[in-house]
């Protein structure tokens, strides 16, 4: 897209600029043909259209969700809606705090387990693995990202849940099983982005550290990880977004009870799972409440994207040396 914009920019002045036009007549410079010019212009507008459709998609979804969900804030009130501990839509109780709580608990646990795993994988790939080993491991990690979440759900349901059940004397439906499955699911996001951040560090930095008498491990944790810090934090934030938005796999293993449980091995529900569970039959204010929950999810992901953008600004101003 940028390439084509540059090309057309580079060639446009020739056709528009009268000076080069005359020199063209003198035979020293060839003019851009009319056909090329039109093609360039058409392509540029085509790409503009693509970008416009994408942006419109976001705007329309936001408007749709916003309009449908807004009344819950107006009629039930933000405090009763967000802070209410009772989710009983059939009797008019629309408190989603148990669901927010569920989303937070499931996401945090997944991050706590998944982040070290993913950052460790990134460090292995970028600093330790030989090119051959990396050539096998990296695609395998990327493949994890491509597995449909319903498959993760099956894996969680049939393999992880029974293990958790045995260890906890319960059924195995609950936050813990969600943590385990989500931890695996966020590894590819965090690992590949963190690896990119580590690999973008110039080799001169590594050489300098080794030449100072540092070991590989010291080089990694004293120089490389701090240098890639912002990129790694970005990766974790995006992993967070993945964890909080994940629906199907979580739905299959957390038990879907919309209340605050006594223990992490008891059934729990999240914002996303509750929307899926209720949407088929919800009507009236109940349905509005589900859209209200969607607004929250929308807001969270916008917040996370904003955070990432802020951090990369910080990074570039740091690179520029403040």
């Amino acid at each position: 897209m940028t390439r084509s914009a540059e090309d057309s920019q580079a060639s446009m002045p020739d056709s528009a600029d009268p000076v080069s036009m005359t020199s063209g007549e003198q035979g020293s410079l060839r003019l851009v043909s009319r056909a090329t010019h039109i093609k360039e212009l058409a392509l540029k507008n085509l790409f503009l259209l693509c970008a416009f459709v994408a942006v419109m998609g976001v705007v329309l979804i936001f408007a749709f969700v916003g309009l449908r969900g807004w009344p819950i804030f107006a009629e039930v009130g933000p405090i009763a809606f967000l802070g209410g501990a009772d989710w009983s839509p059939t009797v008019g109780q629309y408190g989603i705090w148990p669901l927010i709580y569920g989303s937070l608990v499931v996401m945090s646990g997944a991050l706590v387990i998944g982040t070290p795993l993913a950052v460790g994988t990134a460090i292995f790939l970028s600093e330790i693995a030989t090119p051959r080993v990396r050539g096998i491991v990296r695609p395998a990690v990327e493949l994890l990202a491509g597995i449909p979440s319903v498959i993760y759900g099956f894996f969680g349901l049939l393999i992880l849940r029974p293990i958790v059940a045995r260890l906890s004397d319960g059924l195995g439906f609950g936050a813990v099983t969600g943590w385990l499955i989500l931890a695996i699911m966020i590894v590819p996001t965090i690992a590949t982005l963190s690896e990119d951040a580590l690999r973008s560090i110039p080799d001169g930095i590594r050489e300098a550290s080794y030449a100072m008498g540092a070991t590989t491990w010291q080089t990694i944790y004293r120089v490389l990880v701090p240098a890639a810090k912002i990129g790694i934090i970005d990766a974790i934030i995006l992993g967070m977004g993945r964890a909080i938005g994940e629906t199907m796999a979580v739905l299959m293993v957390v038990g879907n009870a919309p209340h605050i449980p006594d223990s992490v091995t008891e059934p729990i529900a999240t914002l996303t799972t509750q929307i899926v569970m209720d949407m088929p039959y919800a009507a009236g204010m109940h349905r509005t409440a589900l859209f209200g929950m969607a607004i929250i999810l929308f807001g969270v992901s916008m917040g996370l994207v904003a955070l990432v953008r802020l951090l990369s600004k910080l990074q570039s101003s740091m690179d520029a040396g403040r």
């Binding site: 050489e207 030449a211 008498g213 070991t215 701090p226 240098a227 690179d319």
Partner: peptide, 20 residues
């Protein structure tokens, strides 16, 4: 080699301070 490199330091062609 780690101890050797403490006794024998090195300066490179391209300045390579750590980003700290």
């Amino acid at each position: 080699p780690v101890d050797l490199r403490r006794r024998v330091g090195m300066i490179f062609q391209q300045p390579n301070p750590f980003p700290m």
